[in-house]
Simulated scan of single mutants.
Amino acid sequence: MTTHIPSLTLPAFLFDSAAASILLPVAAGTAIGFSTRPKQTQTTYLALRQPPLRPPPQVFGPVWTALYGLMGYAAYRAWNTGMTSFDPRTVALTKQGATLYTLQLALNLVWMPLFFAYRRPIEATVDIVALTATTGYLTYVWAQVDEAAAWCLAPYVAWLAFATYLSAGAGYLNNWDFAAKEMPKGGKGKGTKFVDERP
């Protein structure tokens, strides 16, 4: 059972303010998205063999923005509800949740560079499995502090389960090797580094 680890937990002032709690994951997620070059990410996404039910790439930006906002609001709610409690167990769960929240946010932000920039599908899938498990446990912990915070995380956990399927499916269908999709310059997939696997 993970406990509160101050050195692995975001500073309290980021949980105290609703604006800071919401803006932190939204800004961090946006920064990671742009750092991995959106056009190249979209090209890579479309070029890889994907499992059924993959959404179009335009869906991910709005969905992740909404999920980051809900995640941040959940953090604000749980922290401010739990830290004002007179029950020492509730305070301890709140702090434990803050550590879990920090860990899941770090795991979340690492996935995109692993999958798209470094093209490491095995590591990306291990990361997202750990992320989903951590977030599921965080939801359970924060449900004991503030039910509304847990419900705010529910869509995020559901999306992570779907994203885990997509990550593992893409890895499996591409033999866990995205480098094998690379083509020489001027080849059939001109303008892209990958073979176009679209049907």
Rank of each mutant, 00 (worst) to 15 (best):
A161E: 04
L70P: 14
Y76Q: 13
M83P: 13
L153E: 06
T84L: 12
W151G: 04
F115D: 04
A168H: 06
G187E: 11
T65C: 11
A150W: 00
I122H: 05
A106R: 02
T94M: 01
G187A: 14
V63L: 10
T192C: 09
L103V: 09
Y118P: 07
D87E: 14
M83E: 15
Q96C: 06
L70F: 07
I122Q: 10
M112W: 01
S167D: 07
N108S: 07
C152R: 00
A150K: 04
Q58F: 05
V141M: 01
T90W: 00
L114P: 02
L166Q: 06
D196E: 13
L166H: 02
V157N: 02
V195T: 14
T135N: 10
A106F: 03
W176R: 01
D87S: 15
S167P: 04
G97D: 06
L131F: 05
D196Y: 05
P184T: 09
Q144S: 14
Y172F: 07
G61C: 07
A98D: 08
P113K: 09
R119D: 11
W111M: 09
R119Q: 14
L166R: 02
L100F: 03
A78S: 15
W64H: 10
L109C: 06
A163M: 05
A143D: 08
P88E: 15
P88L: 15
L153A: 09
V157W: 00
E197M: 12
C152G: 05
Y73S: 13
G72D: 12
F194D: 10
Q144E: 15
I128R: 08
G97K: 01
A117F: 04
T132G: 08
T139Q: 10
T125K: 00
N108L: 01
Q58E: 15
W79M: 10
M71S: 13
N174L: 04
S85L: 04
P155S: 08
L173C: 04
W79E: 12
T90Q: 13
A98E: 06
